[in-house]
């Protein structure tokens, strides 16, 4: 009894003080986090934030230059093969052989994990059915559309029944509909097979649907929690103001309302409870200077802006946060 209790409590992934350097460039600057069994965990951040480096380390492709990573209790450096057996990986770049058929790709993959014969074939067929790929089983991968190829990638990563699924930017090249299907399917995997999912993403939508999110910026984990928890840390609603002269309005807003507007990509952002009332107050106070005002519940991007002063994609904030 106590044995199973311990097994449940043992985190699937433990990362402690993880560092990584490419030459003198520091890609990961001390990351620590734990991921529990059955969780869908998202690593959110801009390109170059350290997501891909962390992904490569977790998928055993690259040893880190410092720190400890344990997966299923096994040390990543000393026992990579014990980990690899339980690991399913979907890479950002395609990893299918385009000259082989869909089924051949799955079989080849199964053989690498010691599966064979009818058992393997049945498993592969069932996966293809489940992912709605049954009819394309005997087509060469090069004849499939990009979206279908992504689905084959997922099927391939699942052939050997992994307990931990790592996905690097899984929805690259998927339209929003296909992206939703993909997320739904990940949810099913967690419910039915108890699979733990770790994915990297720069798409807010995808991050919002994770159980927990870690936000990576310049090699540091700047936030860690459930999406609601992270958004709740902001001061209520987010009000965004467009103006002909945002710098000037920034000063005026600060003087008038005692708030701290942040200038990001030419628009002013204010975190404020009861945002709808604030919208009216702004328009009343500076009718000539406001082009448009929008307000909304904070998104994870707002969390990111709040923490780093810049958008997930795009330009650095122009000084607002520091002022």
């Amino acid at each position: 009894m106590s044995g199973t209790a311990t097994a449940v409590r043992t985190p699937v992934v433990e990362v402690d003080g993880l560092h990584h350097h490419y030459g003198s460039r520091e890609a990961l600057a001390g990351i620590s986090l734990e991921i529990s069994r059955g969780e869908i965990f998202g690593l959110l951040g801009p390109n170059g934030g350290g997501k891909t480096t962390l992904f490569k380390i977790l998928s055993t492709l690259m040893p880190a230059t410092g720190g400890i990573v344990r997966v299923f209790g096994h040390d990543l450096v000393r026992e990579p093969d014990a980990i690899r057996r339980h690991l399913g990986v979907v890479f950002q770049r395609p990893s299918l052989d385009s000259k082989l058929t869909v089924m051949e790709n799955l079989q080849h993959h199964g053989h690498l994990y010691g599966l064979r014969g009818t058992a393997l074939h049945t498993r592969a067929e069932a996966l293809l059915e489940r992912l709605d790929l049954g009819e394309r089983a005997h087509d060469r991968v090069e004849t499939l559309s990009g979206g279908l190829q992504r689905r084959v990638e997922l099927a391939k990563a699942l052939v050997h029944r992994p307990d931990l699924l790592l996905l690097d930017e899984p929805s690259t090249g998927l339209d929003p509909g296909a992206r939703r299907d993909f997320t739904t399917y990940l949810g099913q995997l967690r419910e039915q097979d108890g699979v733990t999912v770790v994915l990297t993403t720069h798409i807010l939508d995808e991050a919002e649907r994770c159980d927990r999110v870690g936000i990576l910026h310049r090699g540091k984990l700047v936030a860690l929690g459930t999406p609601d928890d992270l958004k709740g840390r902001l001061g209520g609603d987010v009000v965004v103001v467009q103006s002909v002269n945002p710098q000037q309005l920034q000063v005026k807003l600060r003087e008038r309302f005692g708030c701290e507007p942040v200038l990001v990509d030419g628009s002013l952002r204010v975190e404020r409870p009861r945002g709808h009332e604030f919208v009216r107050e702004i328009v009343d106070a500076f009718p000539g200077e406001v082009q448009s005002v929008t307000f909304g519940k904070p998104t994870l991007e707002d969390v990111f802006i709040h923490l780093t002063g810049r958008r997930l994609w795009g330009e650095e904030a122009n000084g607002g946060a520091a002022a």
């Binding site: 998928s59 055993t60 492709l61 093969d81 690899r84 057996r85 690991l87 990986v89 890479f91 770049r93 395609p94 990893s95 299918l96 052989d97 385009s98 993959h109 690498l112 994990y113 391939k156």
Partner: peptide, 13 residues
């Protein structure tokens, strides 16, 4: 270059 090798390298072999 095309990425196929990644999948082989993470297999337990």
């Amino acid at each position: 270059r095309e990425g196929f090798l990644q999948g082989v390298l993470v297999a337990p072999i």
